[in-house]
Amino acid sequence: MADETESNGELDKGLVVEILDDLDMNLSKVREHGGRADRIVEGMLAHSRDEPGGEETMNVNRVVDEYAKLAYHGLRGTDSAFNVTMVREFDENAGQVTGIARDLSRVFLNIVTNACHATAARREEADASYSPTVTLKTKGHQDHVVVSVRDNGTGIPDSIVRKIFEPFFTTKSGTQGTGLGLSISRDIVVGHGGELEVESEPGEFTEFRIKLLRESNIAEVTSAS
């Protein structure tokens, strides 16, 4: 009888431990999804922001370089093993554009960060010969500037390329992304009278091209929308 009681006690303890483990895992998932929900709400608020801020003139090369560095060091701050080669092919005639610096810098930060993530993902599966690289390129024209961000990461299948600018669509696993970054980025660029395009080859590269007018005509674009 004593052995049976002891056995039942061990079973009860084992069941309690199993339940506690399940509760701990569930709480962890709740925290993760709660954090993602917070980020989605913040993104929605950014989508509907009524006061976009004042326009100013900014040097394209300087802003792209600054926020590329910020993206790189931000990722290094969360993952010390992360590394990527940043290649800069800046046109000295890229010059300046007029727009909302806070918003345009957000576009550059988001797209460069995504490019870095793509190289990190490919690095996990590639052999030692793979060299993660993000190429930043600017090209000045008379009435506009084109900023290109190209990575040699995982690439994007055609079926996904058609969806990546849709709100809440994300290719990132778990709770890493809200699916609002590229949607907001495109809204910002279009709101400045520009264009945001993407080209990709799965397993080879992805390139985002941002066309910005010298004079953004934000008020005119807003009134027409």
Rank of each mutant, 00 (worst) to 15 (best):
T78V: 14
S80W: 07
D38I: 11
N114L: 09
G140T: 06
D151I: 08
S131R: 14
M44A: 11
S105I: 06
D50N: 11
N93K: 01
R106A: 14
R88Y: 14
T85Q: 09
E89R: 15
T135M: 07
L45E: 12
G140S: 10
L45V: 09
A37C: 08
I100E: 03
V41Q: 10
R36W: 06
R39S: 12
A46S: 14
S28W: 07
L104H: 02
K29M: 09
G54I: 04
G35E: 13
G99N: 06
H117W: 13
E125F: 09
R123T: 12
R122C: 05
V112T: 15
G99H: 00
A120D: 15
S48F: 12
N59S: 08
F108L: 10
L136W: 04
E125I: 09
L27K: 10
E51S: 09
D151Y: 03
K139S: 13
R36Q: 15
K29I: 07
L27T: 11
E32S: 11
A68K: 02
T85Y: 07
P132I: 10
V134D: 05
G54Y: 05
A126Y: 12
V84Q: 01
N110Y: 07
E66G: 02
H33D: 06
L27Q: 05
R76H: 10
D143S: 15
Q96K: 15
T154H: 01
E92Y: 12
N152H: 01
M25G: 08
L104M: 14
A68M: 04
D103P: 00
R123H: 13
I156A: 02
D127V: 04
R36V: 08
N93R: 00
